[in-house]
Design a protein around this nucleic acid. Sequence first.
RNA 1: GCGCUCGUAGCUCAGUGGAUAGAGCAGGAGACUUCUAAUCUCAAGGUCGCAGGUUCGAAUCCUGCCGGGCGCACCA
Length: 610
Amino acid sequence: MNLEKLLSGRLGPAFSAVAGQAAGKTAGPAAGSSAEPAAGEAAEPAADDAAEPAAPDGQAIPVDPAVRRSQRADFQSDAALALARRLGRPPRDIAAEVLGLADLGDLCRAEVSGPGFINLTVADSALGTLLSGMAAGERLGVVPPEVSETVVVDYSGPNVAKEMHVGHLRSTVIGDATVRLLEWLGHRVVRVNHLGDWGTPFGMLIEHLIDVGESEAAHDLSVGDLDSFYRAARVAFDADEAFGERARSRVVALQSGDADSRRLWRLLVEESEKYFLAVYDRLDVTLTEADFYPESFYNDLLGPVVDELDRLGLLTTSAGAACVFPHGFPGRDGRPLPIIVRKSDGGYGYGATDLAAIRHRTQTLGATRLLYVVGLPQRQHLEMVHQTAREAGWLSPPARAQHVGFGSVLGADGRMLRSRAGTNVKLIELLDEAVARAAELARSKSPDLDERTIAEVARAVGIGAVKYADLSTYRVKDYVFDWDRMLSLDGNTSAYLQYAHARIRSIFRRAGAVTARGDITVTEPAEHALALELLDFGDAVASTAETLEFHRLTGHLYTVATAFSAFFEQCPVLRAGDGVRDSRLALCDLTGRVLRQGLALLGIATPDRM
RNA sequence: GCGCUCGUAGCUCAGUGGAUAGAGCAGGAGACUUCUAAUCUCAAGGUCGCAGGUUCGAAUCCUGCCGGGCGCACCA
């Protein structure tokens, strides 16, 4: 139970009574300015908006007390100001009357402040009770969703025979956090790695493979030198007329199922997949080969998809291509924009693959929530595909699709870190550098750690820094990749959170204990402040799961960590007297679990010492 | 031209229509015989891109501008 709901529950009836009373007196036929029907469910006292006073006779009307965190107290309620105009009374009077009626018991004390705010300060005893309850469970105050859904998360999606670069970083990191979070909440999550393993480039890639020799090519690819392989193929394609001709006919052979072509293609794919898995392992993400749903997976479904579009009357032939024109997408010239499902040369377009994938996800996998962790530039394309799927009946409620879009990673110069030609930053090299920098840091800060521990810490801190930097800002915005900032020892970084956790574990090592699950008593201001933050964990997780804006969760964890650091400075744990010591150990334990679980949801490890 | 998106402290970023707009970094001043100083405390730092509008109240909602980024037919 979170505090805001608890406080709302206490204040709500009082507000309703005050509002209803006044409405009974004043609400005449003239008051019907709004046709809003005050929502049927009286069971939900905390509706989104303060309901319009439509009840005719002094009956209780649900009023949202608008409780939120406050700088002047723990919480504040703003509802009196909103009611003042409607009731024709001064807001301070309303607030005062509400406080007279509200049953706050020993939950908190309250006072009217300023123009009519109600400031609420939660009692230490109430915090202790709530924290003890939270500490006794394993879910840390996170309530399971009402319905467990099947969620398909489409993310990472590297291209065969192409290097993974920073462009894949965000999709992979955000997608991994998404699956960890939704899975922990109790949803059935299907990871879908939409590998680019099909299409015209494979003609030239196979021909290049033949030219360099299979074993040589396999070697090049297995050491992860994918870009130069791809580039060499491209160079040959552009420069050599005959090569280009071979490449084009190779595509035809491959797509018509020619056995030798398929064998060579599989070779390319398998080497790349091995490489991708190595990168995922280094990145510490949960993707495995079982999650590969490459483009070619849908090949057999493309024909039926196009046939069905035709049968539904959605297909139009335009300039020789089979197209769908979803509603609401005008192009440059004002005419509707198409999704090309079959190109004029007879080959299927990627739009067909995307549509087949949707149909597979809703109809075969049974998904009701389809997430696309894909860069923002693809927004319009995705919306067109989703609109088409809705028109075809493959995406109908409760199933819905959500584009989890993200901005670019920028360099220090403010331009895209991923460059067009040649100078891509290899993801694997970037990760290695992160770990190396973190190792150097660990050695300088903690010279007493042995090399084995240094290596573990370096991995957790280095990889954590990269992930946290990505997850801690609003994902729609671009962000600047900056080693010094992300590996900084203080500020809103993963290292800071990991350090807070390591300090807690250190206390337990010294205490000779692993956990402490006793009751928690709150007395000191620093304990009070920490308690408020800890009790907010459930809400932070819930809102993150809804919006998939992970900076909400990182921001929450950061406030937990800062509150803990202040507590750590001000409240001795091991040196405290017996009763206090047990309580504080339990508070440390709970804080440690929140930090560890919170970071685990982000895919970030928490070493026991740093 | 149309569409999407962003614009908040010197820098990087938060900010669910509510009080004096918050953090961190950098820069300034302090705190380690005390559970990890990879820490903490204090001070300083702002025409919330601009202009209108709605509202008792706008960084937040609406409209129009300005600026940055990205899309807009057979590449994915």
